[in-house]
Design a protein around this nucleic acid. Sequence first.
DNA 1: AGGTAAATGAGGTGCGTACCTCAAAAATTA
DNA 2: TAATTTTTGAGGTACGCACCTCATTTACCT
Lengths: 340, 340
Amino acid sequence: MRPTTKDLAKAAGVSLATVDRVLNERPNVSARAVRKVQDAIKRIGFERNLAAVNLARNRVYRFLFVLPERGDQYLSELLAEIDSARAPLKSELVEVGVVRLDVEDPHAVANLLSSLQTDEVNGVALMAPESPQTRDAVLRLNERDISVVHFLSGQANLEHHDFVGIDNIAAGATAGRLIGRFNAGRGGTIAIITETIHAQDSLKRRLGFDRVIHQNFPTLSCLPTLETHGDPARAERIIKQTFANHRDIVAAYIMSPEGRVPLEALSHCADLTDLIVVAHERTPFNEEALRDERLDAIIAQNPGHAVRSALRILRARRDRRQPFAAQEKIRIEILLADNL
Amino acid sequence: MRPTTKDLAKAAGVSLATVDRVLNERPNVSARAVRKVQDAIKRIGFERNLAAVNLARNRVYRFLFVLPERGDQYLSELLAEIDSARAPLKSELVEVGVVRLDVEDPHAVANLLSSLQTDEVNGVALMAPESPQTRDAVLRLNERDISVVHFLSGQANLEHHDFVGIDNIAAGATAGRLIGRFNAGRGGTIAIITETIHAQDSLKRRLGFDRVIHQNFPTLSCLPTLETHGDPARAERIIKQTFANHRDIVAAYIMSPEGRVPLEALSHCADLTDLIVVAHERTPFNEEALRDERLDAIIAQNPGHAVRSALRILRARRDRRQPFAAQEKIRIEILLADNL
DNA sequence: AGGTAAATGAGGTGCGTACCTCAAAAATTA
DNA sequence: TAATTTTTGAGGTACGCACCTCATTTACCT
């Protein structure tokens, strides 16, 4: 049988009350008692029964996803994943909420975060760009014992913060290598397209992309990043102009998660079956485009994994456990028509 | 507050005992009572508290992985993953065992399975080839309320059976497309290597590979599958002979999870930086080879995901829940040097 | 109608842990 | 040494549910 606290008390030669004091770090315990209990824990292999703990504490986990107000297809996928994660988690006392707001406005984000009450929320997955205001708000949340996971948005290298998402430099490098290999040593120029270059994600992806192209595919060269600002007309114009100026474009790299606007503009400038195009994120549109060979590859971060990973981290933090790191690394997926 | 069984009883206008009878499908309940309780469940949004259920049932989950006796690096990875899954699961009352035996011997497998006792094991993840004996043993296990997940070994399309693993036809197709694209329209021949062609996995991978090459890359042609039987000398001999007979080999596809033997043989016959080589599974050897460009891509099924997925399915079955399917699909990962 | 079987309710116990109170024992201080 | 503080133990209740018993009610049959 699995040892219980009773067994532990007996093994340690102390009372149940003392075991309880040690396990829950209550005051007024002698160092000797602590040692006795900890030794016994190791000796008999005691493990807290989490089900019983949660029952006794009558604890529920309330987590909140803070997501952008307006978004592309990828955001819809995320919402769907959050939704489908909800049901099975309910029976484990996890309740998941979603708030959407203008994440580009640091004050709005900070205001929301500081309005959260300890008895309403005990963990936040935050998908918003880094700013002094939000950084400060996050620290104050932590002080109130509400943990925060940075979710899919660029602060991978912040120490002391949990992060869920891919390494965007590596993602860009992966895109670069795919294009380089698919082009197989021929010369040419690569068009690089994003919504806005101000996004951390785009900067990092571009960095990784350039590095790989320069190092490994010297016959290829990269054009400056084109910014669509999500505007089809503008996209059409700048892409057309770029193709007019550069007759040797062999590939395009779409760095932002919304592929439709740039891809349609591209289709008016070149034969997409010849042009090598790599885009980001598995959205219905991108999937479709991959199937009919308008896209050649998709670099994706699985939204379902991301959601579940964030929730696991928040749960671990709430339980004062270490998150099981290996499981939480979001992989950079490469999708071709065959492994969709 | 979360509704409890007490609330449910009140809402349904029945006693706690009747609620209990309905929830746990005990006999002697009228259809009317069942309906009243089920209506109330929906009406007040009752959800069983799994922690309390498990506590009251004093239930532990005992699962067993049945794995091959001798194996390659991939098997070591699997074992490591099982090991590291164990610790965090212990606090959730899940105990994971491993048995290794000669899975090629159907009698041995069947014997082991039928020796399992309901009070010792309540779920098995079975990594063994299909055979009438094992199939029968699995059925008899199911009768004794021990559920079985077929684990990473080729029975994907069996109905009524849980399966964890990748679609090997799609995996082969993915390898084919990578090689085709990396070769970029040039002509040539592809060497295909495996340990033994009798493995279901190899057959399916070959099938998917051939299909893609024939349909999409008509300038390429595939040679008959070479079998190493895991023997370096034999590998050396047959590969050397193949390269002697075919001067236009541009690529090699290593279908079996152990990459070392074929790759070393290949290195004696061609310049690996020119030859396009795709192999299976992320092992330390394959990773290394990918980094220094002896390999061009790895097709992988994440062993950690596979292990956790199998455990989740077994847990769901034990709880008489439906496994949360979307989460359990093992992805076909493509690894390049940049997204390792 | 009486007899029987089926359905229901009331009430209890236990699962492993958290959290509380109170009294007693031990250690520390004056 | 006495007074005080700290540490410890004994014992209880609660969490939400499963599972059990027994008495009572209801429905069904002849």
